[in-house]
Design a protein around this nucleic acid. Structure first.
Length: 856
RNA sequence: GCGAAAGUGGCGGAAUUGGCAGACGCGCCAGGUUUAGGCCCUGGUCCCGAAAGGGGUGGGGGUUCGAGUCCCCCCUUUCGCACCA
């Protein structure tokens, strides 16, 4: 141990030590409790950014903590190395996507190693390697067998900028998740995964993770799945065979239906237009439907933009309300979506805001059929003399209430009627109770090169034939021509495309689409458990030891995409018998963004190269050392909050590390003579007792805050302990044996608890304190434990209030009784001055907390 | 528009259950030491006030002996959803 701390030297030394001793390399060990700490795997863009550093610092701190507590900690890393940037680089600069990707990985791996993150590097994986994507393909075939994968012609979200299709999740809001540009619609044959088969389970199983995942994430997923329960009801078309099936959550309002409104793409419209001779009305409807269809999906709603104006046209068709027998006109309108429910709704203007707005515009009748149950003045006027007529309403009444004007159902409560009427529809054969979801199946076909090829062969005779398992992996060819054709570049590679049919051996063509990269990331953390397995994606027994993931850490941006897909994938794997649980992640933490000022604008925005407000982690490590950078990042803000980058803060971290280091250096020689066994309580001087109290209190706090991931307050607690050590005695000379014992206890605890935040410095100091083999080398869990008796204060300062205002303080024993506190408070001189001459109404005594004297 | 979360010094942020508001750090001020300087050490640092004391957690009201914390109204910010029938 040198007198001065040189981060470069110390960090390099311990990084080498960790590598050589295999400090972070772990194996399954059924006798030991495991802890699986996982950070979201990075895309190898080429450079680490501060968001990565923050993510890995949080995970690394937790991993170290768990290791020091004796857990067998799996902490792996890998690369989400398929995807568009590599292909863009290939198109723009003519580089090979594989070379580009692997160079990036090499560079980023170096950065991670300089950061000293405690990964088991033997388990590193990369999605673009055949050893990995073979299993993507294997899973695809398994899904196909279980009918969880299927192909269909489908309108897809097409991003013209990225020249690819996107899933619903990736085109949320009508814009591409990657480039932010508007998305178009196209009809393309593509492969889907049947995530909707698990819609109910994805909702239901949230019970298991409730409280352990951020509520926002669960809410976002819940909204995305969008379950709603209601009923299907069939409206017969008058003078025709057709029925229009509508979906409603408010069948109790059906007597108020004054129209049926369908989507522009609804079959009933198409049939009407196809039938019979020409008519003026048909032309109008056709023109309207075409206009709506053209704008649907392309009329992209930018955030904050006004909702589209409701427009519609009467088709002239008449539908019969099966409950009332009444006739209702059939309209086509732009506000009814073909993708949701049945693409048709009953229009109940009195009790639905959209229908109300629509009815106002087109003067459709408004009929009230639900009344507020309150005895108070009804909010909406209602004229009893005109029960059956359109009634003046200033807005729709959308709450539940009591049914009126609804034949025999009148007088029932909405809650009951909704259930009973759906049941009645079933019995009567014109409908049924129904549940719909907003969630759509996951389209995974991408017309791209840099992804896992979908293992399908198209044969004229046999159709779409799965590639036999023994032929996996279907490898990506090395040489490819790139061009923005809208087709996968693979289509231009003859030797890839032209194959023989696995069934009939005849000439056949290979599928040229590749898989969405979210497939790769849906199961990667299972692969870490058994990364070199050549027989299976992973060994189930091994995975059973390591999974589910105990703590997952990553950005909120994956709240609905990755985190929904991986939940789905895990449930599918469970049903395949590969794992024995359905929720892959026990606890999730979503870390906040790292932001920086943009120039002089005063605006804090996410760091990024293009904005020019990025900070290079390498520069920071070089200037301050990895430990100081990480310590600062964890200290500056709670992990979930935004972190505003202020470089002056790192100086504080550097100072703190140096202070601790020099204290250790100053004490180390004297501590060799410190007693091994704790001296008897009487031997400790008052300062020594205070220090011991501070040490044990800090251990208790830090241990507790680790479980809650309050890492910023943990660093603060360590700084306090270090300050207490500074106050204790600056020099070891003249210290008694008991004082030496207390000093060593404090220093060792401080160093050990510092390890999760500044592991290199902690290793160096631990060694400086005379320990060999490193923090993880002794085969013993070193995390200190708090002695509750010492953590408790011997004496307490109890504030005394008079009428809620602080007037004095009492110093009392920690176990002073209520009576003792009361009389001590009343006897206190300063307090007496405030109480004198007044009537004491009440004395509130909260033991260990305060005394409040209420006077008049 | 709907829904959720959050508003605390000059700044980042502390304050498990209602119980001393501002821990810890940055910055700033003063002093010391060393130096060319960075550095290091000591003390101070919510506001008003000479002090006693008073005020203070976005604004207003309420509950309570006691409110940053609970309830109601309003304002602001951030995030999510946005014709989902």
């Amino acid at each position: 141990m040198d007198e001065k701390y040189f981060a470069e030297v110390v960090e390099e030394k311990w990084q080498r030590h960790w590598k050589e001793s295999g400090a972070f390399e772990v194996e399954r060990d059924d006798a030991r409790a495991r802890f699986y700490c996982l950070e979201m795997l990075p895309y190898p863009s080429g450079y680490l950014h501060m968001g990565h550093v923050r993510n890995y610092s949080i995970g690394d701190a937790l991993s170290w903590y768990k290791r020091l507590r004796g857990f067998n900690v799996l902490h792996p890393i890998g690369w989400d190395s398929f995807g568009q940037p590599a292909e863009q680089a290939a198109i723009k600069r003519g580089v090979n996507p594989k070379d580009w990707t692997e160079e990036n990985i090499a560079h980023m791996r170096g950065q991670l190693q300089r950061l000293g993150v405690s990964y088991d590097w033997r388990r590193e994986i990369a999605a673009h390697t055949p050893e990995y994507y073979k299993w993507d393909q294997w899973f695809f075939l398994k899904m196909l067998e279980r009918e969880l994968a299927y192909k269909r012609l489908s309108p897809v979200n097409w991003c013209p900028t990225c020249q690819t299709t996107l899933s619903n999740e990736q085109s949320s809001g009508g814009v591409c998740w990657r480039c932010g540009n508007p998305v178009e619609r196209r009809d393309i044959e593509q492969w889907f995964l049947r995530i909707t088969a698990y819609a109910e389970a994805l909702l239901e199983d949230m019970k298991e993770i409730e409280g352990a995942w951020p509520e926002r994430v669960l809410t976002m997923q819940r909204n995305w799945i969008g379950k709603s329960t209601g009923a299907f009801v069939d409206f017969q078309i008058k003078d025709g065979e057709d029925k229009i099936r509508i979906f409603t959550t408010r069948v109790d309002t059906i007597y108020g239906a004054t129209a049926v409104v369908v989507a522009a793409e609804h079959p009933v419209v198409e049939r009407m237009l196809a039938e019979g001779g020409p008519s003026a009305l048909k032309d109008e409807v056709r023109a309207f439907a075409e206009r709506v269809r053209a704008t649907h999906g392309t009329s992209v709603k930018v955030a904050g933009e006004e909702q589209e104006e409701k427009e519609g046209i009467n088709t002239g068709l008449i539908a019969i309300n099966p409950f009332s027998g009444e006739q209702a006109p059939v309209w086509v309108a732009n506000y009814v979506l073909m993708e949701y429910g049945t693409g048709a709704v009953m229009s109940v203007p009195a009790h639905d805001e959209r229908d109300y707005e629509f009815a106002q515009k087109y003067s459709l009748p408004i009929r009230r059929v639900i009344e507020r149950i309150s005895h108070e003045q009804p909010v909406i006027e209602h004229d009893p003399d005109h029960e059956d007529q359109s009634v003046a309403m200033h807005q729709a009444f959308t709450e539940y209430g009591i049914l009126v004007n609804s034949a025999d159902w009148s007088g029932k409560l909405s809650e009951d009627a909704t259930r009973e009427m759906a049941e009645f529809a079933r019995e009567s054969g014109f409908g049924e109770p129904a549940t719909t979801f907003r969630l759509r199946d996951w389209g995974i076909s991408r017309q791209r090169f840099w992804g896992a090829p979908i293992p399908i062969i198209y044969c004229e005779r046999c159709g779409a034939v799965p590639v036999p398992y023994e032929d996996l992996p279907v490898r990506l060819p090395e040489r490819v021509e790139f061009g923005a054709t809208g087709q996968s570049p693979l289509a231009g590679v003859e030797e890839f495309v032209n194959v023989s049919c696995p069934k009939c051996k005849g000439a056949a063509r290979r599928e040229t689409d590749t898989m969405d990269t979210f497939v790769d990331s849906s199961w990667y953390f299972f692969r870490y458990c058994d990364p070199r397995n050549t027989e299976a994606p992973f060994d189930s027994e091994t995975a059973r030891y390591w999974t589910p993931v105990d703590q997952y850490i990553g950005g909120i941006d994956h709240a609905v995409m990755h985190l929904l897909y991986t939940r789905f994938w895990t449930k599918a794997m469970r049903d395949m018998g590969l794992v024995n649980f359905g929720e892959p992640v026990r606890r999730l933490m979503t870390q906040g963004m790292v932001t920086n000022l943009i120039g002089e604008t005063g605006e804090w925005k996410r760091m990024s190269k293009s904005r020019g407000n990025g900070v290079d982690p390498d520069d920071m490590i070089q200037a301050y050392g990895s430990d100081a950078v990480r310590l600062f990042i964890l200290f500056a803000a709670p992990p979930e909050s935004e972190l505003r980058w202020q470089e002056t803060g790192i100086d504080g971290a550097v100072r703190f590390l140096r202070r601790v280091y020099s204290m250790v250096y100053r004490w180390r020689d004297a501590l060799r003579d410190a007693p091994v066994e704790a001296p008897s309580a009487d031997d400790f001087t008052t300062p020594a007792r205070k220090l011991r109290h501070e040490t044990h209190r800090t251990i208790a706090r830090v241990t507790d805050d680790f479980e809650r991931l309050h890492l910023n307050t943990n660093v603060a607690a360590l700084m306090e302990l270090s300050n207490a050590l500074g106050d204790f005695q600056t020099k070891p000379e003249g210290a008694t044996a008991a004082e030496l014992f207390a000093a060593r206890e404090a220093l060792e605890a401080l160093v050990l608890m510092l390890a999760p935040f500044a592991p290199h410095a902690a290793e160096e100091m631990w060694e400086g304190l005379g320990h060999e083999g490193g923090l993880l080398g002794g085969g013993r869990a070193l995390w200190p434990s708090a002695d509750p008796a010492l953590a408790r204060k011997e004496e307490l300062e109890i504030p005394v209030q008079v009428n809620g205002k602080l007037r004095g303080r009492l110093t009392v024993g920690a176990d002073a009784s209520e009576d003792e506190l009361r009389s001590a408070a009343l006897a206190d001189e300063r307090v007496r001055a405030w109480v004198e001459g007044k009537e004491i109404v009440k004395v509130v005594v909260v033991p260990k907390r305060l005394v409040n004297i209420v006077v008049r």
